[in-house]
Amino acid sequence: MLLAVFMYTAVTAFVVFSLGKARQYARHPLANRWELYPVPGEPGVSYGGSYYEEAEWWTRPRQISRAGQYGAVLQEMLFMKSLFVNQRKFWWFSYPMHLGIYLLGLFTLLLLAGAVTEMFGMPLTASDGVSSHTWAALVYWATAVAGFAGIFLTTCGSAALLINRVADGTLRKYTTGAEYFNLFFILAAAVSGLVAWSTDPGFNYNRGVVAAMLAFAPVRAGLPLTVHLVLFGALLIYIPRTKMSHYIGKYFAYHKVLWDNEPNLKGSALERIVEKNLVNRPRDGWSSPHTKSTETGKS
């Protein structure tokens, strides 16, 4: 039961800490505009143009392509396009790890689907192998492929990133102990997953763990799986407290800084927020005398 409680705690901590981090940034005061072109969704995105390219831009309806925005987000999320374009070598190390993590997310959903399927009386396996039922077989094989690919890619990627950081003199110079530890932690969790997989290639025990958690029943797992679950759970608790929570940071970096070119038009909702901000702006924070003065030279 202890393992089950730990896993509930880990998942809850991941969600709560991640939301907490997002909330921390979401509660920041409205930032000064600091956009950087190209901004996806702008008509001139192919060369980096903006609405400022038209005379009297504020008199024209803004043209924003939501499809363009979502497309850019997806390219960045799914393929890490920026890294691919600007630092190909690093992409070859980093992308497998991230793709592996995405696949492990999918794997978790498939485990959930498999556990629910079995709870409804349709086992994924039969005494002679995989169930002959199409849905059950599909879930079984999809879980097996996503799970193995996810663990394998995460292991390779994190190992490559770790080795690269140690081997590359420039990276080594700037890498902190915490950053080595982060990569090592991911690698350890992934390797333990590989070991657990070697004893259970169909991930049947993993599915059993999910089923037990859904039923609030004690989790039963062998030593390899227990070690993996402990490491994985600890990683879930740890990630949101570190800069590995960049899945949150990146959202704010793009949507609230680099791509936020919403103009403060007279009478707009944004102007009302700006007004509120200006009213609440503290006026006595910095120490240099010139910051105390509101004098603009005009009497």
């Binding site: 940034y25 920041h28 005061p29 409205l30 930032a31 000064n32 600091w34 890294l83 600007n86 630092q87 690093f90 980093s94 420039t170 990276l171 700037y174 890498t175 950053e179 800069k243 960049h246 940071g249 990146k250 704010f252 970096a253 609230k256 800084v257 901000n277 702006r281 503290p282 924070g285 910095w286």
Partner: peptide
């Protein structure tokens, strides 16, 4: 501090906190 750096708090904190030191 939000009281003293409201306009740059978000971009500054993000750059400070999340750099992966990849060197790009």
């Amino acid at each position: 501090a939000r009281e003293t750096n409201s306009g740059f708090l978000t971009p500054f904190n993000l750059a400070f906190e999340y750099c992966a030191r990849c060197g790009v």
